[in-house]
Write a protein that binds this DNA or RNA. Structure first.
Lengths: 214, 214
DNA sequence: GACGCTATCTTTCTATTGTCAAGATTAATC
DNA sequence: GATTAATCTTGACAATAGAAAGATAGCGTC
């Protein structure tokens, strides 16, 4: 039984370097933003040589893809949680949108990485699965509100005006917010902004209902 | 009278290096995207030493800010042109939104630079003026549709659900489109997508009218 | 328990980048 | 025409990503 050596200087093998690198990358993103991310700084924080990450993630973009994947998983979880707390279908859809925007405000650099970066490896299976799952929370609830049968796939969004509108309004608010286009940032302003977001999404939900019943 | 020397090997002074650098930067953005942009490559394309740009733009971000500024000016012009061709206020608002998305589809990297980059010098006066002008085309037309008096400022968008919604839906569609989230890209697909965008914005405009009259 | 295999990690090297400092060259001004 | 200011070059520095080659240690097999 390989007894874990008790704290040598620096054990040659890290133990769980992949997880440590992801955590370090998340911290760097939060502190310095996406442009402030460097693979070497990541390695430094994990107390490991600058070439070590390559064995787990290939290159810098591979690590970023893993970080983005975990970001999608957290976003999915956030949206599901708030949706389950709501009884009404319409308010559930609004709550999902608010959670989406709140996620962006809480993790702006991560959100940018997930949605606005060309440094992601889209052929990565885990990544696309995580992105798909997040999308389906939104599209599934929308289909419920609209009284539709099956939710649409992502690539069909470009051909369905209603789904496009619903996703776009939420995503647009999130994007504009973290870019500082909607006024100053800060705890107080963010809360005020989320109130406005909730109001705007309620109006949207009302419009969806009117359209599908009219 | 300083007669322009007829084509020496390489004239020590470029003549209009600032413009040449901006043009080179735009070309690089179009070819290789924002992450593919480098200051040295820019200098190479302008046939100038790697340190020359500093005298005109300070640093790399200064050049990018100038490029973004000219991007906002073009976007403003595009939106104004299509709006003037429309008679009805509602269709003008729709046309502005379509122009916004079309601009993003035509210049995706430039659009990302303008809206999703932290490499811009927001204290630059020309830059903020250009951004403000673009915003006011949209908010002005929205105010007209809603029967409002004065259009709102950008920082008030975070407190006004209707304006927030209107900007967000257009910006969200543009963003999702250039990130490939709405299906494959390409001439045919883009045209199909713009039709969907137009349909979606028409539904939005109808909703605005219903709300302000109800 | 010994052997070998393989994953993990380090060191070293190359090419590239942005920025700075100092000098060269030209245009503008008086 | 001389001085000043703007423009551009050369050379250097620190930092980066990635590749190559070697060191170390965990793991299965016999």
């Amino acid at each position: 039984m390989p007894k874990p050596m008790r704290k040598q200087r620096t054990p040659y093998h890290h133990g769980d370097l992949a997880a440590a690198l992801i955590a370090a990358a998340q911290a760097i993103l939060a502190e310095r933003g996406l442009d402030g991310f460097t693979l070497r700084e990541c390695a430094r924080r994990a107390s490991v040589s600058h070439a070590a990450p390559a064995h787990h993630f290939g290159d810098a973009n591979g690590l970023l893809t893993a970080v983005a994947t975990s970001g999608y998983e957290r976003l999915t979880q956030d949206m599901r949680e708030v949706a389950e707390r709501e009884q009404d279908r319409g308010t559930a859809l609004v709550a999902i949108g608010v959670a989406y925007v709140r996620f962006a405000l809480t993790h702006p650099a991560l959100f940018r990485l997930m949605f606005h970066s060309d440094r992601l490896d889209r052929s990565n299976d885990a990544f696309s699965a995580a992105g798909k799952a997040a999308f389906e929370v939104l599209s599934g609830r929308l289909a419920a509100v609209r009284g539709r049968e099956a939710p649409l796939t992502r690539s069909e969004t470009g051909r369905n005006p209603t789904l496009l509108r619903a996703w776009a309004v939420v995503h647009g608010m999130a994007t504009l917010a973290i870019e500082g286009r909607l006024g100053p940032r800060g705890k107080i302003h963010d809360r005020e902004l989320l109130d406005t977001v909730r109001a705007a999404l309620s109006m949207q939900a009302d419009a969806y209902r009117r359209e599908s019943s009219g």
